[in-house]
Amino acid sequence: MTTIQNTTEINRNVSEVFAFLTDLNNHEQLMPENIYNWSSTSDEARFTIQNMAKLALRVEERVENQLIKLIPSEKAPFEVTLRWEVQAVSETVTKATFIIDADLNMMMKMIASGPLQKLIDFQVNKLKAVLG
Rank of each mutant, 00 (worst) to 15 (best):
R58S: 05
N65P: 06
I35C: 04
M31Q: 12
S40Q: 07
S40L: 03
N51H: 11
E61Q: 15
V59Q: 12
I49D: 00
I35W: 10
R58T: 04
V63R: 15
Y36W: 08
L67A: 08
A56M: 03
L67D: 08
P32G: 01
F47I: 11
K54Q: 12
L55D: 09
Q29E: 06
I49K: 11
I35R: 00
T41Q: 13
M52C: 04
I35D: 00
Q50M: 12
A53K: 12
M52H: 14
R58A: 05
R46A: 06
S42T: 14
E61D: 10
P32K: 03
Y36D: 04
F47L: 15
I68L: 13
N37E: 15
I68H: 03
I35V: 15
R58Y: 12
N37I: 01
Q66Y: 08
I35A: 03
D43L: 11
S39I: 06
R58C: 08
M52F: 14
S42F: 04
M52W: 14
Q29N: 12
I35Q: 01
I68D: 01
R58F: 09
V63P: 05
M52S: 10
P32D: 05
A45L: 12
T41H: 13
L57K: 11
L55Y: 14
I68N: 08
N51K: 11
Q66R: 15
R58P: 00
E64G: 02
L67I: 09
A56Q: 15
K69T: 11
R62I: 03
L30C: 06
A53L: 10
K69R: 15
K69Y: 02
V63E: 13
D43A: 02
A45I: 11
S40I: 02
A56T: 13
E64Y: 10
E33W: 01
K54Y: 07
A45T: 03
R58H: 13
A56C: 11
I49Y: 14
A56E: 13
L67M: 12
Y36C: 00
M52A: 13
M31A: 12
A56D: 12
V63A: 10
N65D: 15
P32W: 11
E64A: 10
E60M: 03
R62N: 06
I35N: 02
N34V: 00
E64H: 09
M31F: 07
L67F: 03
R62V: 02
A53M: 09
I35T: 11
Q66P: 02
N51S: 12
L55A: 06
M52L: 14
R62G: 02
L57D: 05
A56Y: 06
N34S: 02
E61A: 06
F47D: 07
E33I: 01
I49H: 09
L55K: 07
L55M: 14
W38F: 14
P32M: 04
Q50W: 11
N37F: 02
R46F: 04
L55C: 09
A56L: 09
S40C: 05
N37L: 10
P32S: 06
E64M: 08
R62E: 05
S39G: 06
I35H: 06
I68Q: 07
F47W: 09
K54I: 00
S40V: 07
F47P: 05
I49N: 00
E60T: 06
I68T: 13
V63Y: 04
R46P: 00
A56V: 11
L57T: 03
D43N: 15
W38G: 01
